[in-house]
Amino acid sequence: MDTLLLYLGPVILLLIVLGFVTYAILAERKVIGWIQGRIGPNQVGPWGLLQTVADILKLLIKEDTIPKNADRTLFKLSPILAFVPSFAVLAVMPFSAQIQFANIGVGLLYYMAVSSITTIGILVGGWASNNKYALLGGMRSAAQMISYEIPLVLSVVGVVLTVGSLNLNEIVAAQQKTWFIFPQIIGFIVFIIASVSELNRTPFDLPEAESELVAGYHVEYSGFRFAFFMLAEYVYIFAMSSLTTVLFLGGWNAPFGWTFLPGILWFIIKFSLVVFFLYWVRATMPRIRVDQLMQFAWKVLLPVALANIVLTALLKEVPFLAHYY
């Protein structure tokens, strides 16, 4: 039974993630549609429910084109490089007290480390396409990911200091009484900004910047290779929203002791709120400029994240505040 689950579990998770991606895309289009006073997709299936299915089907049966002057090996490798880490990071994610695939001691570090591999995939894709826009997009992406990974990691150090562990289960367990969003509000803000940037979403969608770089690093990709990039992007939304929930919103813990709903449902609710937030930001914000992006990471987010670490360490020593930290 255990062996079966060991092999079947990831397959089930993959299916769940694919299902999520399918409907996350639809939800995004619907939500943004409503925000913009439109209806959104409503033709394919009832209420547009099959829209993404049709889109994916179209991508899968499309002719597979590789530009003549592209580096064929790297061109083919890049979508895989981009996608695999996005799925691999889900292994350590505790969705509820029971559902988790690998309870490892350095779960948080594992997430951060593995997720940065995707950057290589994107850079390789931009390079291999032999397209100037793709190259610019890939370069932007690399610069952006590296810059924002630092505040992202530093912003969660506060949480790690408080819990005294990198294990995600222990982090959730430590939030039984107080979610870290309250004591770690500074860390949370830095984290959410850096994570939006890591996800390459508006206002930090420079690597794709449709109006500037046409489509950025994946401009030459079509068909299922393009689908892989899209998939990686949305799986990261899944992963990042899960991580936000786990680190700052108390994971599967019920608020106010409302335990009448199972933990997994609480997780889903919080998770959905984070996903909705990402959509909302996308519908509201213009895009930031490259130099502003870099300045923001190094001159604003990084010092703030560092200050947060020091603050957390100090507050940990204050007698009546210490139990929050």
Binding site: Q36, T202, P203, D205, A283, T284, M285, P286, R287, I288
Partner: peptide, 16 residues
């Protein structure tokens, strides 16, 4: 113009 700068919504409001 806002679309060029990366904001999508004003475009649709304006066209409405």
């Amino acid at each position: 113009y806002l679309l060029d700068i990366g904001a999508m919504s004003p475009f649709l409001y304006a066209f409405r």
